[in-house]
Nucleic acid binder design. Structure first.
Length: 293
DNA sequence: TTGTGTTTTACGACCTCC
DNA sequence: GGAGGTCGTAAAACACAA
């Protein structure tokens, strides 16, 4: 809304248009035209209506001289050559220092004000284009993120079902070894075999063995209580290792903050899977040793 | 030719910086 | 406070389909 124009809005639309040409210096939008309409209406409207923008008499004279050379009553576009030069200048620097403005105006036969306005409008157009471009690139990166997310979900499902099948395998081997121990084994054999039921325990035991074989700190003999503590604390760390992991429930790992949605980290973390893969062979070897030795 | 949508030129109001 | 910026807008110029 052009507020200033409302102030001077006359009764008829024609008068409004012509008065606008008079007040703002041209045929529509204050374009650089000072022509017949101006002089004719200046007499009709009186001298009390002054152009608000150009105040100095020198400027007015200069402008009138310039505009006398233009067609009087039309808002005219810049010539292709003018636009070309302006574009080139804009590419070099999209802000306009006063020196450059005067220089360009002189070179192009335009008013400095016109050059400034052209740059303002050009910046606005550039900004609009930039916004469109940014929107497009954000949209495409959102698309690729979405497909990444989908493939990660699929991979997650695959790994989860792998965990479930391995757990089942482990449990069946445990049952077999328990049965064998009930017939010929000792109580400690049964306990050892039973402890295999929990994969976390296996991981911990593997770690304990690593420590023992490496001789890194502690006694070479681990008594029962110490072993239990090791198992307990390690189980805690196993389950809390991933900050977003909760207790295992039927293959699904539930976070304390799990709201049932797929948002956030509700599944095994990469770290857990990495640890499991790392120890998988050792676990299998131990399993074989406990069950079949 | 005419109606309609888009682009270009220009402005006033307001904001920020020096 | 002035200069120069952005923002929102008007209106002419232009493009194009019906």
């Amino acid at each position: 809304m052009d507020r200033a124009r409302l102030i001077f809005d006359p009764s008829s639309s024609r008068c409004r248009h012509e008065q606008r040409m008079l007040l703002l210096g041209g045929g529509g939008g204050g374009s650089p035209v000072f022509g017949g309409a101006r002089s004719a209406l200046a007499a009709a409207e009186g001298a009390n209506k002054r152009r608000p923008f150009f105040t100095s008499p020198e400027e007015l004279l200069e402008e009138e001289y310039y505009y006398d050379e233009q067609q009087p009553d039309k808002k005219r576009r810049l010539s292709p050559e003018q636009v070309r030069l302006l574009e080139r200048s804009f590419e070099a620097e999209n802000k306009l220092e006063p020196e450059r403005k005067s220089e360009l105006a002189l070179k192009l036969g335009m008013q400095p004000r016109q050059v400034a306005v052209w740059f303002q409008n050009r910046r606005a157009r550039w900004k609009t284009k930039q916004l469109e471009h940014d929107f497009d690139s954000l949209k495409s990166s959102y698309g690729s993120l979405l497909s990444d997310h989908d493939s990660l979900l699929k991979e997650n499902d695959r790994l989860r079902s792998q965990v479930i099948s391995l757990t089942e395998k482990l449990q069946s081997r445990t049952a077999a070894s328990a049965a064998a121990a009930g017939i010929a084994g000792t109580k400690s054999d049964v306990q050892a075999a039973a402890s295999v039921a929990d994969p976390a325990t296996l991981v911990v035991q593997t770690k304990a063995e690593d420590r023992l074989s490496a001789g890194s700190g502690g006694s070479a003999v681990v008594d029962g209580e110490a072993a239990n503590q090791l198992v307990d604390s390690s189980e805690v760390s196993y389950r809390e290792g991933c900050h977003c992991m909760g207790p295992v429930d039927g293959g699904r790992v539930q976070s304390e903050e799990d709201d049932g949605s797929d948002e956030g980290c509700n599944y095994y973390s990469d770290g857990i899977f990495a640890a499991e893969h790392h120890h998988q062979d050792e676990v299998d070897a131990q399993l074989d040793w406990w069950v079949w030795s």
